[in-house]
Amino acid sequence: MDKTTFKISKMDCPSEENLIRMKLDGMASIKNLDFDIPNRELTVFHEGSLAQIQKSIGELNLGSQIISTEFTEQTLFEENSHQKKLLWTVLAINFAFFGIEMTTGLVSRSMGLVADSLDMLADAFVYGISLFAVGGTLIRKKRIAKLAGVFQLVLAMLGFVEVLRRFLGKEAMPNFETMIVVSVLALIANGICLYLLQKSKSKEEAHMKASMIFTSNDVIINIGVICAGVLVNWLQSNKPDLIIGTIVFVLVVQGAVRILKLGK
């Protein structure tokens, strides 16, 4: 059996892990996948088909490259029986915060919160596809991925239109206090999700490492919205909120494109 390690520079959080898992699902040559999110590495245990594996991972545009490949005699792998329960947990957290951030974003007139809510929804889609496609056919998985990707793209496009309208028109100031408080809560929620999923990998990873948290795009986005809230109050302008909203919408579109690639 071969053991090939990939460096995946844009693998920032467990949602990208699940994207890769779904992309490689069904490849008989793959015997096990071992993800190291803090170091952004993926180790694939496989019997041949390296070119196909490399091509499939590359199609997700996550910045992948092979670090090493070698023969291994390892044939037994630890199975995590709690994975499905954990996926349901993080799905529930992400979907709940999608609702919270979307509602508070609309009420407080913050495009940063609205955009971040869609980023939470994007992660929920990835976890959801992982769960609902289990045991299903490849065609079913692709169909679900297409629907999720298109829905996410439509919402992001509507968000871009609203940001443009607010840039060009006169809009009331967003409520910076709501932006900061809700983003802090979302930051905590993302940290919990990342911790739970990383903790499940092995006992050695039971303690949350700073590198696990701060390599996550979701956490960086939360910090960005917090900073935008501070700047909104300091500058007495809605522009920081619109700028962070635009940046997050771009990330949401990129996520939607990756999901759509699963449907090909």
Rank of each mutant, 00 (worst) to 15 (best):
V161K: 15
G128M: 05
D119A: 14
T5L: 02
S117R: 00
V150N: 02
V248F: 07
K3R: 11
N233P: 13
D123G: 14
D218C: 15
W88L: 11
L113H: 00
A124T: 00
I57K: 01
G229I: 01
L86T: 10
D25N: 11
L260V: 06
E162N: 13
C227V: 15
I226A: 01
L118F: 07
L251G: 06
V134P: 11
T104N: 10
D116V: 02
R40I: 10
L33I: 00
G224K: 02
G99L: 03
K10M: 06
F160T: 03
I188S: 08
M11C: 04
I223N: 01
V184G: 04
N190T: 09
T215H: 08
M157E: 11
L231C: 08
F98Q: 05
K201W: 04
F151V: 15
E204C: 11
G63C: 01
I129E: 10
I180W: 01
L187M: 06
A256L: 03
T89R: 12
H82W: 15
D218Y: 12
N32V: 00
D2E: 15
Q236P: 09
V154I: 05
C193N: 12
T69A: 09
L158K: 01
A189D: 07
S68D: 09
K85L: 15
I226W: 01
V253S: 07
T137V: 13
N94A: 04
V252C: 07
S9G: 08
I57V: 05
K199R: 13
I100G: 04
E41L: 08
M27C: 02
E101I: 10
K7G: 04
M22Q: 03
G255F: 07
V182S: 06
Y195N: 08
T104L: 15
F95W: 11
S15K: 05
M22T: 05
H207L: 13
I247M: 10
I100F: 11
S211M: 12
T89G: 07
Q236I: 07
D12C: 13
I100Q: 09
N238F: 10
L113A: 04
G229D: 07
L118T: 02
P240Y: 09
I247C: 05
D25E: 13
V232C: 03
S15A: 12
I226H: 01
P174K: 07
S130I: 04
K142G: 09
M111R: 04
A210V: 14
I192S: 03
G255S: 13
K199L: 06
G63T: 02
Q74S: 02
A124C: 03
K201P: 04
V248R: 12
H207C: 09
V253T: 10
S56R: 08
N94L: 02
R21S: 08
A51F: 15
M173F: 09
S56M: 11
A172N: 14
V150C: 06
V250M: 08
L155Q: 12
K84F: 15
A186C: 09
P14N: 10
T103D: 13
L91S: 05
A156R: 13
